[in-house]
Design a protein around this nucleic acid. Structure first.
Lengths: 221, 221
DNA sequence: AAGACTATTGACATCGTGTCAATAGTCTGA
DNA sequence: TCAGACTATTGACACGATGTCAATAGTCTT
């Protein structure tokens, strides 16, 4: 990291400082403060480029304290990811009763709304595979499940007990498309929201109408 | 890395070794040899878990030599990725002339074939976003372009000069779905090949028939 | 105000990386 | 066949990052 010079918080010469050299505060607050700084840094820079020293400096704290609260840098990072990839909206059930098209339309709108709110900063994570990192993968998969359940609901597929596993797999695959589409919209800005909406809605409809029914067929290719 | 003990290649006691202590060979061969070892290690373990020392040990070579040939570990890694993510098949043009459905069907079959051949080992890379790594992202994007062009061809969208950029974006999004679908098939084994085929074909058809035409509409949502 | 409690520090040991001058195979010409 | 040039290869070095842990110093209790 290219960071400002050390900037010891109380090295202003000739000025006697009022606050104690050691700022001692409630563990929860301190933990939260370090977490916030780490979140900001990890948002702006890739993992390897953020050193524990950077985080400590940002929090105005000794580096050792990070290990004291979070064990190691990796754990802190994973906690940041976990928090930020959790879907905030839990208003899952509010779907129209009407036609499949309308339900899907509503689900897509809900998804894009929730993404727009968070600004999509964490969209670039490469969810699904990553660099064969089991812990990170699990976190992202877990976070994804909420969306997947909603989508299954929207497609009125929740009754299909038979091939539930395979349906989930297909929806999981679709979730990657949705993620990628949102990326083009929010990060790259190559598509407008209506365009992404059309893309996501039409593909989901096709999956519900054709791909899912084809599960039972198992025709050779 | 948990690796076998040092295993100095010529420390067998009591046996006078024939080959010189330093194995000096053609730079191209040496470079290739190191590359091969790195490839094997990076295939089995995540980037951070593979140290330059590991690679050097696997190649039976001093660690410094890796830097001599590849500059730094990261460059070596990126080169491995670049080679392995390049689509081997260049037989792009061989598409049927018939209906849109048939062309798409053929394109999907081609895609799954080429994936099946490489075993999908490198499918887990998190293409598209990764951890905000511009270099890696560029490599994966470049590798992806071949597939995207084929798909555009298959959908008979190559004449649409107007919104070419947005069409490419949509196909790029679709490529993520295809990648993710292949992952479920080859890595997780939650879907069969026919199922993935149906999934990919139906969604691509939907994109060509509905999402792409919707580009010009730009209706509010 | 004394002492207990514990949040916080800073030095230490370890490890991974990249650099570079020194070393030693290999090839050439006499 | 041998000296000497050429260069592939080595190993030591400096540096930076990480995690540990005993020592330190705020803060609270009595």
């Amino acid at each position: 990291m290219t960071q400002d010079p050390p900037l010891a918080p109380s090295e202003v010469p000739g000025v006697e400082l009022q606050e104690p050299r050691r700022q001692r505060l409630n563990p929860d607050e301190r933990r939260q403060q370090i977490f916030d700084c780490a979140q900001k840094l990890f948002t702006d820079h890739p993992y390897e480029d953020v050193s524990a020293t950077d985080i400590a400096a940002a929090a105005g704290v000794a580096r050792g304290l990070i290990n004291h609260y979070f064990g190691n840098k990796r754990t802190l990072y994973l906690e940041v990811i976990r928090v930020n990839s959790t879907v905030s909206e839990v208003a899952v059930a509010r779907l129209p009763e009407g036609r499949l098209e309308d339900r899907i339309d509503a689900a897509v709108r809900w998804y894009l709304n929730s993404l727009e709110r968070t600004g999509g900063t964490w969209l670039g994570l490469g969810s699904g595979g990553m660099g064969r990192d089991p812990d990170l993968e699990k976190i992202l998969i877990d976070a994804e499940n909420a969306s997947v359940e909603l989508l299954i609901e929207a497609c009125q597929l929740s009754d299909q007990l038979e091939h539930r596993g395979q349906i989930r797999a297909m929806i999981r695959v679709y979730a990657q498309l949705a993620r990628s589409g949102a990326r083009e919209w929010l990060l790259r800005k190559t598509l407008t929201r209506p365009q992404v909406h059309a893309l996501l809605a039409s593909t989901l409809l096709a999956i519900a109408r054709e791909a899912v029914p084809a599960i039972t067929k198992d025709l050779p290719h």
